[in-house]
Design a protein around this nucleic acid. Sequence first.
DNA 1: GAGTGGTCTAGACCACCCA
DNA 2: GGGTGGTCTAGACCACTCT
Lengths: 238, 238
Amino acid sequence: MKKNIYLNIYNEYAELIQTGSLEPGTKLPSESELAEQYGTTRETVRKALNLLSQNGYIHKMMGKGSFVLDIGRMNFPITGLISFKEMSEKIGRPTRTIVEQTAQIEAPKDIAYFLQIPTQAPVWEVIRVREIEEERVILDKDYLLPEAVQTMTAEIAAESIYDYVEQTLGLVISYAKKEISVEEATEEDRRLMDLKGLSHVVVVRNFVYLEDTTLFQYTESRHRLDKFQFVDFARRIR
Amino acid sequence: MKKNIYLNIYNEYAELIQTGSLEPGTKLPSESELAEQYGTTRETVRKALNLLSQNGYIHKMMGKGSFVLDIGRMNFPITGLISFKEMSEKIGRPTRTIVEQTAQIEAPKDIAYFLQIPTQAPVWEVIRVREIEEERVILDKDYLLPEAVQTMTAEIAAESIYDYVEQTLGLVISYAKKEISVEEATEEDRRLMDLKGLSHVVVVRNFVYLEDTTLFQYTESRHRLDKFQFVDFARRIR
DNA sequence: GAGTGGTCTAGACCACCCA
DNA sequence: GGGTGGTCTAGACCACTCT
């Protein structure tokens, strides 16, 4: 158990802060104290504290110490890399997933472009409607490369594609790029979602990459305007 | 010049990648090589590489090396902490700022709540309309605490509040929390922006904190739907 | 086995903050 | 001046990848 001391420290404090056991404003032990407590050195402690700082849990002040922020607790929806399943577990409201489509199709032009493959190359298309509190407010359209994912079923899609890809297939999702914009609702949007007459939808385009930097999934998450929220924590680089 | 070797390395490579001098897929020198090149040690080089990785410039692969990504170049609008002035310089399209209001007012209930001050406490209210390619597409409403910012004029608002606060007043902006949602357009939105009949606007609420963790500014940036875009880079924590 | 990145150690010096 | 965080050094061992 000598490995990843810094991750242990990070996880322990992230937990303490997220559950509210450590109130905002609380001063953390100094780096030297923490080093002694965990039987390690300052550099290792600093790795943990920097992670906490980047993720909005604490703030470090020169000459003063590290302090708990009241921001890290509000972690939610679409920030970072998180699946709908993980999200719905966090927000704790009744959700349901309806799988509309799970099939291998010939990539249409726009999808081929996004995935950087030839038009009409085979791709998995998974279309899912997400219901929150009995309203169909999100339409998720996933496109996956058959080279990386040989099998895809409605059962898998009903659960979590992330879980399947990471746990069953053993692929490692590494990073993603997300683009958020607002676009006119399509006929498909109107058919599959409860749009309540709203003319536009929020479109979140997600490009997911594996550890070997290959792009393997493109996801288009279409949200009803009034049910969309995104929160971001930013730290000034200096 | 012994200070911040790792920032020098970071900046040099960020520049090389952003300008395209290093093409996507290029392998960087190994950490040991870089350490030798810069006359430093591996830990210091690793700080630089981790920064590059977090910001989407490179990807590190165990046992293989570090490789240039083609994502870091697309840096744009609202990600991170960046002012409209910095942004407009990046996108290189003709922009103009129209200052509608610069005055000290008594905080209305919602603003007081956001800034965590008593209702009717004095705050600076700055209202600016942003024109991009001769269309009024963004309405920025800024509220600043008089304790931190004693003076505010239309001239300052026409330039950059960030520059004024950081360079003239010497305050250090440290981090911010951003919330993005879509809301119905108000009468004020319709009056000040060219909404083209669109019924909703994208609202970006920005809570800006100083280095001593005091909240000193609340900004509401209201965007016309079709001109809004947000890009995010996310890395899976493991 | 050679090369790579991931983690860690045990020091060091500095700039900053506060009493 | 004592405590704090910021940076850096010169090593070490490990896990992984490639050939």
